[in-house]
Design a protein around this nucleic acid. Structure first.
Lengths: 144, 144
DNA sequence: CACCTTTTGATTGTGCACAATTTAATTTTC
DNA sequence: GAAAATTAAATTGTGCACAATCAAAAGGTG
C-alpha cells in the first residue's frame, strides 16, 4: 500500500456512507413531494406520529438534530398545520410538540411511502437488513 | 407487525445511514480544522490529490455532487491557493481543475488524518470493512 | 450554412446542518 | 435566599446540497 493510499477516496468508509445517504434521500424526493414534505420534515413527522406528543429536546436527540436545525423545521410543520407547539406550564424553557388532527390524517395518506420505497429497491433484501444492523450498531456506539 | 410500523423511524434503513453519516462528519471536524478544511472540501481535495488534474465534470461525478455545490466549494479551495481552474482552449465550456504546489504541500501535512480517524475507531474493524463493502455495492447499484 | 439539440458550468433560491452566541428560566450551592 | 451554574430553545452566521434556470458554446441535421 502506497504512502498516500489512505488519502484516496476509494479507501474511505465515510465517503460512501455520505454519498449513499444523499442518493437515498434523492430517491425519497419524488415520493414525498405529493405530500409537500422534505426528507427532514418526513423523519421528524415519523417520530411525532409515533409519539403523538414529545418534548422538543427528546425529538432532537431521537433525530440527532440540534435546535438550530429543528426550530425552523418545526416552524414549517406548524405552518402547514401538522403539529402544534407549546411551552410547559411548570417550566417555561421546555417546549412540547404535539400532533394535530391534520397531522394524523397525513399519516393515513402517506402510509404507502415506505412500502413504495422498499418495492423500488432492486438489490438483495438480506444485504439491506445486514446494512441496517451494522449502521444501527455503529450509531449506538457513537452516541455513547 | 402493526399497520403503521413501516412509518416508525426505527424501521427505516435510510435514517441510520443519514444520521451516522452526519455523526462521522462531525468526528472529522476537529481533525480537519487545523488545516482549515471542511469535510466537503477535504473529499474534494482527495480526488484532486489523486488525479493532480481533473475535469470539473468528472470531479462532480466522482463525488456525486452537482455544479451548484461544487462551484462554490472550488472557489473556496482556489481562494486558499490549493487548486487552480482554467477553461479548455478547444472547448470553452470545459473547466479543468488542477492541484497547486501549496495543494501538494497540504497533502503531506494532512496525511495523518485518515490514520488518526481509523485509530479513534473503537469498534470491530471487520465490521467496518463489511460496512464499506455493502455501501460501495449499493452506491454502485444506485449510480447505474 | 442556419437551425436545433445537447453539453457544460454558473447562478439563484430554498432548505437544511451545525457551531457559537444569546436569552430566559430553573436549579444548585453556599 | 442571592449568586453561580446549568439547562432549554431561539437566533445568527457559515457552508453545503440540490432543483431549476440560464447563458454560452459545441455539435449535429437537413
Amino acid at each position: 500500500m502506497g504512502k498516500y493510499d489512505s488519502l484516496k477516496l476509494e479507501n474511505q468508509v465515510c465517503f460512501p456512507l455520505y454519498a449513499l445517504s444523499r442518493e437515498v434521500i434523492k430517491l425519497y424526493k419524488p415520493l414525498l413531494e405529493p405530500f409537500d414534505l422534505t426528507y427532514t420534515q418526513y423523519i421528524t413527522m415519523m417520530v411525532i406520529w409515533e409519539e403523538k406528543k414529545i418534548l422538543f429536546k427528546d425529538l432532537g436527540s431521537r433525530l440527532f438534530l440540534d435546535s438550530g436545525t429543528l426550530t425552523p423545521v418545526l416552524k414549517k410543520l406548524e405552518a402547514k398545520g401538522l403539529v402544534t407547539k407549546y411551552r410547559n406550564k411548570d417550566d417555561d424553557r421546555v417546549v412540547t410538540v404535539e400532533i394535530t388532527q391534520k397531522g394524523m390524517e397525513l399519516k393515513e395518506k402517506i402510509a404507502k411511502v415506505p412500502e413504495d420505497m422498499y418495492k423500488s429497491f432492486k438489490g438483495d433484501r438480506e444485504k439491506l437488513m445486514e446494512l441496517k444492523k451494522l449502521l444501527d450498531d455503529l450509531l449506538q456506539e457513537d452516541s455513547k
